[in-house]
């Protein structure tokens, strides 16, 4: 059986967007394409209240079928890997619930099962999470206010790679920053199985106050599109060859 690939965008930002389309809309579009959008809002150390701008963080993740979390820089590493894994479970569980609905009717969901059966299903979900392939596109906000947080972000991404590469399934990561020099996003690292070598490529700061989060998400979505389009073409070829054999 061919195992599926989970696709995620991981957005790391510290504030609200101020240019282009509504990021929640862009996230909703991505979700419709089978890409979950997770958002981590990085707080300033002295921030105690949840600032108004970071409300957006939750909205984007909700529309994007992902997980959101507000954190202080010190706990970023643990949060990034936790959010990524939670989102994987959430997506897989979504599939399972859909299947259950088909089998059990509209009442079907994991909560409606007795604890013993739920346990068996959850074990299957965990197995899938361990063995499925995963593609994460990391989208880093590099507007001026993020400058002092970027070293921590780099640490957290290396840590994420340690966590995910302990899985049985394969991983592919890519990193984009926004705003880009001329475009909405800028490629930092092309799809690769590890993030160990990002120290050398980590972005130099783009100064300026614009944060085009919405356009950035949409552009990020296309990066999956390009690749999976290529692959689906390739797969079609393979199938074609097989079929001529019969």
């Amino acid at each position: 059986m061919r195992k599926g690939t989970l696709k995620q965008i991981l957005l790391l930002t510290d504030g609200c967007s101020n240019k282009g389309e509504d990021p929640a809309l862009a996230a909703a579009v991505a979700y419709e394409q089978g890409i979950a959008v997770n958002v981590i809002g990085i707080l300033e150390d002295e921030q105690t209240e949840q600032p108004e701008g970071l409300k957006e963080v939750e909205d984007i993740a909700l529309s994007g079928g992902g997980v959101s979390q507000l954190v202080y820089p010190e706990v970023l590493s643990q949060t990034v890997q936790m959010v990524t894994k939670q989102a994987m479970t959430q997506t897989l569980q979504g599939f399972v619930n859909k299947e259950l609905k088909q089998i059990l009717g509209s009442e079907g969901s994991m909560e409606e099962l007795e604890p013993e059966k739920r346990g068996e299903i959850m074990e299957a979900v965990e197995d899938m999470g361990e063995t499925c392939d995963l593609e994460v596109l990391v989208l880093v906000d590099t507007s001026a206010s993020m400058s002092n947080k970027l070293p921590t972000v780099k640490e957290a991404l290396i840590d994420l790679s340690i966590s995910l590469n302990a899985r049985i399934g394969r991983n592919r990561f890519s990193i984009y920053s926004f705003p880009g020099k001329r475009k909405d996003i800028q490629k930092v690292l092309d799809w690769s199985p590890k993030l160990d070598d990002i120290s050398s490529v980590f972005p130099k700061l783009t100064s300026g106050g614009i944060t085009p989060t919405g356009p950035a998400i949409r552009e990020a979505m296309y990066q999956f599109g390009k690749k999976s389009l290529l692959r689906s073409l390739r797969n079609d070829d393979e199938r074609g060859i097989e079929e001529t054999g019969y």
């Binding site: 479970t89 569980q93 994991m110 909560e111 604890p115 739920r118 346990g119 959850m122 074990e123 979900v125 965990e126």
Partner: peptide, 13 residues
């Protein structure tokens, strides 16, 4: 958090 609890119960079992 039903799912996380289910995972813990599986381990205990």
């Amino acid at each position: 958090k039903g799912t996380s609890m289910t995972v813990e119960v599986n381990v205990l079992k």
